[in-house]
Simulated scan of single mutants.
Amino acid sequence: MAKETLHIIKIGGAVIENPEMKQAFLNGFVALKGRKILIHGGGRIATEIGNKLGLVANMVEGRRVTDDATIDLVTMVYGGLVNKQLVAQLQSLGENAIGLTGADANLITSSKRPIKNDVDYGWVGDPQLVNDTFAKSLIEEGSIPVIAPLTHDGQGHILNTNADTMAGTMASAMAPHYEVNLILTFELDGVMKDVNDSKSLITNFEQSFFNEMKASGAIHSGMIPKLENAFKALESGVGSVRICKYDQIHTQNGSFLQV
Score class of each variant (00 low, 15 high):
D197G: 01
A175K: 09
M213D: 05
G217M: 08
V146Y: 02
Q207N: 12
T169F: 15
L159G: 08
P145H: 09
K193Y: 13
K193A: 08
H177N: 09
F209T: 14
M213S: 03
T203I: 02
V191D: 01
V146I: 13
T161K: 09
E187S: 12
P145I: 08
E187P: 03
G156V: 02
A173T: 05
M166S: 02
H152V: 05
V191G: 01
I158W: 13
E187W: 05
D194L: 09
I144D: 00
N204T: 15
G190H: 05
I147A: 05
M192S: 07
Q207I: 07
L150D: 01
V146W: 02
I147N: 04
K199E: 14
G154S: 09
L188W: 00
D164G: 05
A173C: 04
S198E: 14
H157C: 08
F210Q: 01
S208T: 15
A215L: 10
S137W: 02
S137G: 00
I139A: 05
Q207H: 15
T151A: 04
E140P: 00
K214P: 00
S208N: 13
K193T: 12
E179H: 14
N181C: 13
L184E: 06
A167V: 11
M170E: 01
S198K: 12
N181E: 15
F210H: 11
G156W: 01
A163M: 05
H177G: 00
L184R: 02
L184W: 06
M213K: 12
M174E: 05
T161Q: 08
I158Y: 11
I202V: 14
A215R: 07
T185C: 12
N162T: 06
A171K: 07
D197M: 11
A148Y: 03
